[in-house]
């Protein structure tokens, strides 16, 4: 009993520190990739290839003054960024990050909490992540913040439906809600990947994932051209930084989910060992998010709702229905 608790605590600390560092590193990668796609160099001067820009930004964020507006609700204003960051990491608790490996004769399962309802737990934790932007916007007594949080509520509630329905069809095929079962169901190489059976579900999940992580075609929450910075208008320093750590951690989570559910997870891929395979897959999805941000314009809020309720949700329902019929026959 005690061993499990200690092991879980150690795993939680490792996941927290590694993913937080990776989330910070993600901002650097994003700036670099976007710069290359616009024929720029990106950050270059702090350290080799600008690698230490990350540390410089961190120091800047930590030492910045933590401004709380005069008419804001102090308590809620202060806890809102923590909700975003915390739920992002709580969601990661149910994700199997790497294949099992043996360290000093002790078999390590790189998953913090092996729930048998892992997928639902991740969705639920990410759904409660909406309270971060929502409360932040409502507490700061700023009209841009209010608009940003209204958009948060609408966007998250709508696209959760699509995420859930799109994942329902693969769940029906595998017959489990555990991500490890999903991974084991696709252990037979590329031919058994879920994406070949459920291409539509994958596309829907990807679109909804972009919306849930607040990435570009759908990043209306803090759309600079319309609402100054949305829910983050009044934030500064580390509280502002926490929103972004949460956002990037969510991007990593969505990358892991897409890899595990649709792309064979951490099974060995030919000559590539499993742990490398999943890192490559997640890196690809992370790159895809940056790539899309460099390429495509935003949608309008009404187009966003149109896309969700009139296009994606009916398609997702049809997909579930057809999958069910095929399974019955």
């Amino acid at each position: 009993m005690d061993a499990i608790i200690i092991e879980t605590i150690i795993k939680a600390i490792i996941v927290l520190s590694v993913i937080a560092a990776l989330a910070g590193f993600g901002t650097f990668i994003e700036r670099k990739v976007l710069a290359f796609m616009q024929r720029r160099l990106g950050p270059m001067h702090v350290g080799p290839f600008g690698l230490l820009q990350l540390a410089a930004d961190g120091i800047k964020l930590f030492t910045k003054e933590d401004i709380i507006p005069q008419h804001a609700n102090r308590l809620i204003f202060m806890i809102a960024p923590i909700i975003t960051a915390a739920t992002a990491f709580i969601a990661l608790a149910a994700v199997p990050l790497l294949p099992e490996f043996t360290l000093f004769g002790y078999t390590v399962h790189p998953i913090v909490a092996d729930l048998n309802v892992g997928i639902l737990f991740i969705l639920g934790a990410m759904a409660s992540g909406l309270y971060g932007p929502l409360l932040a916007g409502m507490a700061q007594a700023n009209k841009w913040g209010i608009i940003g949080s209204a958009r948060t509520a609408i966007l998250f509630m709508s696209y959760e439906v699509v995420t859930g329905l799109s994942l329902l069809a693969p769940i029906m095929l595998v017959g489990s809600l555990s991500l490890i079962d999903f991974n084991n169901a696709q252990s037979g190489g590329i031919g058994e990947w879920m994406v070949w059976q459920q291409p539509l579900a994958f596309i829907l999940f990807l679109i909804a994932g972009f919306a849930e992580t607040n990435r570009t075609p759908f990043d209306l929450l803090e759309h600079e051209a319309e609402v100054v910075s949305g829910y983050a208008t009044e934030y500064s320093g580390m509280r502002w930084g926490m929103f972004f750590i949460g956002e990037y951690a969510n991007m990593i989570t969505i990358g892991f989910m897409a890899s595990l559910i649709f792309f064979g997870g951490f099974n060995d891929l030919g000559f590539i060992p499993g742990f490398l395979a999943i890192i490559l897959k997640v890196s690809f999805f992370f790159f895809l998010m940056l790539w899309v941000r460099a390429s495509w314009p935003h949608v309008r809020p009404d187009q966003l709702m149109w896309l969700c309720w009139k296009v994606l949700m009916p398609i997702a329902l049809l997909n579930v229905l057809i999958t069910g019929l095929v399974m019955m026959v």
């Binding site: 990739v33 290359f36 796609m37 024929r39 160099l41 270059m44 790539w291 460099a294 390429s295 495509w296």
Partner: peptide
């Protein structure tokens, strides 16, 4: 049509990185 946009940015990235088409002046 969306993939055309993706291809344009990827091509630009390739040109900038490997064909010396970086436009930044330091």
């Amino acid at each position: 049509e969306l993939f055309v946009g993706l291809w344009v940015t990827l091509r630009t990235m390739y040109q900038a990185l490997f064909q010396d088409d970086m436009h930044t002046v330091k």
